[in-house]
Every structure is written in structure tokens, then in C-alpha cells.
Design a protein around this nucleic acid. Sequence first.
DNA 1: CACTTATAGTTTCGCGGAGAAATTATAACT
DNA 2: AGTTATAATTTCTCCGCGAAACTATAAGTG
Lengths: 370, 370
Amino acid sequence: MRPDLPDASKAVAVDVLVHGAQSRVQLAKKTGLSAPTLTRLVRPLLDAGVLVERDSVRTPGRGRSSVLLDVVADDYRYIGVKLTTESIYAVLTNLRAEVLASETLPEPSLNVPEVVSSVAGVVSRMAAKAGRPVRGVGVTVGGRVDKGETVADSPFLDWHEVPFRTLLAERVDVPLFLANDVVGLTLAQQWFGYGRTYRDFALLTVGAGVGYGLVINHEVVPTLVSPIGHLPVDPHGPLCPAGHRGCMTAFVTSRAMANTVSLARGRSTTYDEVLKLAESGDPAAARVVAEAAHAVGRAMAAITSLTGVERIILSGEGVRLVEIAPDSLHDGRVEYADGQASALDPVIRPMNFLEWARGAAVVAIQASFP
Amino acid sequence: MRPDLPDASKAVAVDVLVHGAQSRVQLAKKTGLSAPTLTRLVRPLLDAGVLVERDSVRTPGRGRSSVLLDVVADDYRYIGVKLTTESIYAVLTNLRAEVLASETLPEPSLNVPEVVSSVAGVVSRMAAKAGRPVRGVGVTVGGRVDKGETVADSPFLDWHEVPFRTLLAERVDVPLFLANDVVGLTLAQQWFGYGRTYRDFALLTVGAGVGYGLVINHEVVPTLVSPIGHLPVDPHGPLCPAGHRGCMTAFVTSRAMANTVSLARGRSTTYDEVLKLAESGDPAAARVVAEAAHAVGRAMAAITSLTGVERIILSGEGVRLVEIAPDSLHDGRVEYADGQASALDPVIRPMNFLEWARGAAVVAIQASFP
DNA sequence: CACTTATAGTTTCGCGGAGAAATTATAACT
DNA sequence: AGTTATAATTTCTCCGCGAAACTATAAGTG
């Protein structure tokens, strides 16, 4: 976006955005650069208005006060849009990915041109509300996205090789970025969430589907070749729609859980009702929730075994299930752990559907900052 | 080892070692550097004797002949030592990790001082055979190794927090490097094996134990926090010594397979006999081998799901089992694959115990080159 | 055979990023 | 007022890198 800035300057700006206001000396220590270099790197950022000097803060002890450098979070706006089969979720955020406005509208159809129109519409409405220039729009979908350009394959939308970014770019006059939905959520955790401080972490989401994101060495690892949804957990569990017995999808997706409980009770039950029933002691619902939490625990153990990553974030619209059955989660984690000091406890981050849209906004923020 | 060489020079030398003799122009293209820079980077390497100019080779077409740069593979020697509970395996190699001599001796006991003595002995015998200066000794063990210095925890040797490198360094006057055994094997694949050309791959070994190494972005990812050996495959499978039902250890380790077949046949059967029986159609042995191959296939699918890595190398002393039952391996891989175009076929690399020692030698080569 | 074209590698030179040392700006303690 | 400590800047210099020009070598061309 600002190709004139040297790489090192960008790294400094990103550090301030991600870790908050800091003095030049602090930044120099963290990056391993010298103080003179930091002065030099920061100057163009101040000129460009990316950073500003905040009032100098006194630290206990003597010496000159340090001047904190901070980003200007509210000069520009970003828009995030997440597509699902039923709805389009959109948020307007500032540079810190704080949500300032949001909109949910029903997906008109899965017909590509209609979706393009709907998204263009919601983007222009959000832009109208922005009051500031919009720096970028991020759009995320479930499924494989190729080079930020094409929806290579989305089983949910039933799209294949759709050049969605280009199609939408004809209708939106703001820089546009396309990505996978879980990648967006992972990037959001990496810059503005739990992953901020760590070089390695994994993100596991449960809800309508099962999502999985992985960061190793501060970089998102592309893990979409074969999705986690069909990771086998217990070959004697229920059947998923794809015909796999006891895979993650069969155990933890909202629809699978609601179906199983509906069958057991002999009447239609929603996912939210399943959770409520489980909490109030209904045996069928409690068993389904426990099995789901157990499956999540097993998946966590497998993630740690195969990636070495100990820090795992659990999230997604359905994540409350693990809070209802923490013991089952724990059992699933340690069952096969061979006495090894068990890994760190997961961080549970509750989430609504708009978080997906926020993840999309972060795609735009990361791509267009500074 | 040669701290005077700039990083970029080292990278060039490594490229020549790993990918073979190349001209300066080829190297410039690959590294993205300019021709003048390459001339400059190569000069100190020629002065130091790390690289030499081979006779210029004519390529079809006009223009000046290019001069190939190559490493001098036989000026120095490296020694690799792998410790197991029963034996010590040692190899003498050149810079290309080609084995020139080897020795296997029974492990005297698992008593640390005795092992130190034995290793010091075998190292001095190998060094005597070397005929050239020995540049480094690599030692690998199963279990967690901390900072190349301490055997933090090795269930096999029953060692805990043993500062093995320092203890051994008092008896060996050559630079000494300590690492985990699977890490060594992974490094060997990365520089001298299948992984040479790829930025991401995984290594899965079967034999006395189950080993797993992972390379992402050309870097080895530490995956030892919770080992793969207890990855659950089928909760209704056999029991492993740690009490897990149907984990990898229970299915694929040589001892587990030999035990199961011994029980079924009512008489003691070795692993090699199990393979022979399976090949000749013995139903019990064939079933055990098929189940093991199936377990390996499931593990491969899980690796791809959770790491995104499609290239997987199968190896280890027991790897022949997957060649006996390729269909079961395939079933395990695709069973839960959800129709996704199945990943690449695994590369099967047969291996004997000395390969472990060669992996140890590569630890020394990587650490002390150039 | 001289001349052109093509490719490999080197030399020269200048730019730009980085730190060491010295300098300036503040603040607190004595 | 003088001393000490910390933050930030200026000055100077070093060093890695590539552009441009140049040398070396080989093959085609009339």
C-alpha cells in the first residue's frame, strides 16, 4: 500500500499496532536494532501519519522521559464481510479491528452475480456509515481460496473456480482482499487476540462446521488441503453426512448434535436447546455434549502431537459446549497422553457470527497496513 | 565453525552441498542475488577451501563455458552415533553423508558413565579409520534433548536431565553435537534425501518405536512435546504397554506386532517372521500387518489434515510392512478423506539401523558446515 | 578469416541500510 | 549548581549489494 516504506519500518509499525504504544528504545530492544536506526525508521512513519508521538510518559527513575509512539487507529476504516449459506455478515472497524458498526442480511441465493450485488450493496452502505476513508475490504468464505483471487472450491456455497475478487472489484472501488474464513479468524487472533504474544498457536472452531488454523514461526500455515472436519475421533461414533463414522463433523457440528438429540427425544431440538438441556441435566443432551467435548479434546491432543503446538484457542459459535462439559474435554485431551505433563489449557474465546466478519476485516487490515 | 564467513556465503555453500555442483550464474538465479554479488560471496569460500572450481562444462549453445562450483566432500570426515537400549550404532561419513565405515556394538548398560566410555571408544576407533580430520561428531538418542546439551528425558534409556554432551566432550576432542534421533533423520532427509527439493514434508518412521519429524518452510518444527506414538487410531484395537487402546504404538511397533502374532499362533514369532508369514498368506500375520499398514495410513491422513503437509516419507526399520499391505495403507489414508483429491503418495525409504547413525552424522554436518 | 552474437564472470562505482561514537534533551537525586 | 541516568538525535563510517561497464570465451556468419 505504501511501497515507499522500507520493510524494517513496516515491521516497526506493525509492532506498535499489535502490541500497543511503545517508545523508540523499547522498539529498538525488541527488534534488536540500534537506537539511531530506530529514529531513522520511525521518521517516515511519522511523516506518513502512520504513527504519532503521544505525550511523553514518566517512568519511575531519572532520565529523559520517553515518547510513546502509537498508531492512529481512527483515521481510516476497514470493512469485513463473511459469506455463509444463509447470511452475509459485515462489520465496519477501525485499524485496531474494533467493530464500529455491523449488518447482517440474508443471503439472497448462492447465485454468484446475486451474491456479488448483495456484497457490493452492503459494502457501500458500510462505507457510507464510515465517515472516514475506507482503506480496504476483506471478504472471507468457507472453502479453498486461491491466491486471494479465486474461490477454488467451496462445498458450502457450491462454488468452484469462481474469480470472486475480480467480479466484486468491478463493483467496489476500495482495495479488496479475499481469503478463507478460518484464515481470517486466525489472522485476527494473531494480531489482535491471544496469538499476539506467541510464535506458535492453533485455532480450533466449532459451530456449523469445524475450522482449524495453524500459526508456526509467526506465519499462518496453509492447512486446507484436507480439512480437519473429517478427522476421525472414534470409529464407533455417529455418522456424518459424508458417511464417515465418528469424525469431528459427526460429533461436534451444531446440526449433528441437534439431530442426535432430536432423535433421542423424539422431537425437533435446536443446538441452543441442546446446550440448555445438557446444563439442566437432560441425559440425552448431556451425553451428546459430553461426547462432543470429548471429541474436541481428542482433536486438541492430535494437534499437539502432530504440530508440536501447545497453545490452542477454542472458538466458534458452538464453543460453549466445551464449557458445559469441561471434564469430557479434559478426558479427551489426556486419554492418550502417556503421562507426559499435559499441555497448556486451551483458551476459550466465545464468539458470535460477527466475529467471522471481523476476521475478514483483519484480512484487509493485514494486507493494507501500513 | 567459520564465523568469518558472511551468512549469504554460507547459504551459497549449503546450496552447493545440498543440490550439487552449480555455476555462479545458476546460484545467482536461485538465490535472487546478482552476478557480481555471487562472485564476491564465492571468493572467500574458494579461499577457505570449502568450494572448488570443477572443470568448466560446455552447455549446448554459444557463450563462455560456465565453471561449476562444488564442495570438497572428501577433505573431512564426520561421525554419527545413535544410542538405543540394546546397541550403539556408529558411522563414519564424508561431507555428503556417504557412509565410509560403520560399527555396531552392544550397549554395555544404560549406566551413563559406561555409555560415555563406550561412545568415546567407538568415536576414537572411527576417527582412527578416518584418515582425514574429523570435523564433528553427532550423537542422537530417542527422547527429548534440550538445547543440544542435555538429554532431558529419554524413556528408552531411562535418562533424565543428563548433561550428556558435556560429559562426552571431556572424552572426545572433536566438536560434539547432541540431538533427538528423529530430528537427525529428518535433517538427513532435508539435506541429502527426499526433502531436498521441498519446503514442507513430514517423516514417519516405524520400527521399535514410532517416530515423526516435520519440516515447514524449510525449518524443522519441534514436535516432541507429545509424541506421535500414542496417536489414537482405532479405540477398539490392541492395547499398548502404556495402556492405550488402539494407538499407533499398539498397532505398528515391531514388538506389538510380534506379540500379537505370537499369541495367535501359540508360539513365539519375531517381527521378520511376521512379515514373511504375512507375505506367504498366513491369515493371522496378514491381518496384523494389514492393520498396521492401515494405522500408518490413518496417521498420514491426520498429518495432512493437521499440518497441511502433503509430502510424507515413510521409513524406519519396520517400514517394509507398508509394502506388504499397500491396499490397507491406502484404505487408511482415504477412509476419512471426504472425496478430496487424495494427497501425494508417500515416499517409502527402506532403512536399517545404521541409517539412524547416518542421521546423527548429518546433525554434525549441518551444525559444522561450512 | 574477421565480425557478430551470446553467455559467464569480474571490476568499478555509488547507493542505502546499519551501528559506533559523540551530542543534545530531560529528569531526578545530592 | 553539579552529578548521574535515560531518551533521542546527529554525525560519521562501514559494508553489502546491484547497475554499468568490461573481460573472457564460445559459437555462428558471410
